[in-house]
Write a protein that binds this DNA or RNA. Structure first.
Length: 212
DNA sequence: ATCCCGAGGG
DNA sequence: CCCTCTGGAT
């Protein structure tokens, strides 16, 4: 994709989704961190279903710790990878209390030092909670960025850096959601639905046949 | 069967 | 690099 086409690429995606937003439900920075940590390899719908009850009784690190491991697991059992997520979330709560005055830290370094928080989760928190111009690269964004030629890279980090370089900063936050939605519903992993893709004119990928 | 807005450990 | 963790929706 040529740099000159990037503006049109996002303008087209924006037409389909003028105001994309996180589907995760949260009422504080701590809830955001917890929700994103829990969302790995899970749908937002299933995470919301669990956190809706969980945050009612535990919306602070201390209250979360008070639940204990098995108490917390009871709330998130319906989410994938629940055991390691429960363990990591409690360890993170303990670190928030011990090292950050019970608050969610604002730096990438401190965020990534939290158990269960990797680069992707840190980027989401930095962007959504603190307004930093970061780009969280998940499986969808990695695939779409490479396939379309928007921001090619061999690793998620390389794609992240390419996106930061090529996507106008004003688009950055919404671009995250546009790329995810595009990847989930149109530019799918196995069989990209190029025949119904609105941004095909700007895309480097050309399917072998036009049959659908 | 396959996928879902990953992260940690080997 | 690879493997594992995990349940629910489709």
């Amino acid at each position: 994709m040529k740099p000159a086409q990037i503006q049109a690429f996002f303008t087209t995606l924006a037409t389909a989704n003028p105001q994309p937003q996180t589907e995760l439900e949260f009422a504080s920075v701590f809830e955001l961190l917890a929700a994103v940590l829990l969302s790995a390899q899970a749908t937002d719908v299933s995470v919301n279903k669990a956190t809706r009850h969980l945050f009612l009784v535990a919306n602070t690190p201390q209250k979360m710790l008070d639940l204990g491991l098995e108490g917390l697991e009871g709330y998130i059992k319906t989410i994938g990878l629940y055991h390691s997520k429960a363990k990591h979330l409690l360890q993170t709560c303990q670190m928030l209390i011990n090292q950050h005055g019970g608050q969610v830290p604002r730096t990438r370094e401190a965020l990534e030092a939290l158990p269960g928080v990797g680069r992707k989760t840190a980027n989401v928190v930095l962007n959504v909670a603190f307004g930093e111009p970061t780009m969280a690269v998940d499986t969808h964004i990695f695939r779409v960025s490479n396939r379309t030629g928007l921001a090619p890279g061999k690793t998620p980090l390389a794609v992240e850096q390419a996106l930061l370089k090529r996507v106008p900063q004003a688009f950055l936050t919404d671009a995250h959601h546009w790329l995810i939605l595009h990847g989930r519903y149109v530019c799918q992993a196995r069989t990209p639905r190029c025949w119904e893709c609105a941004v095909a004119p700007y895309c480097d990928f050309k399917p072998k046949t036009l049959e659908g």
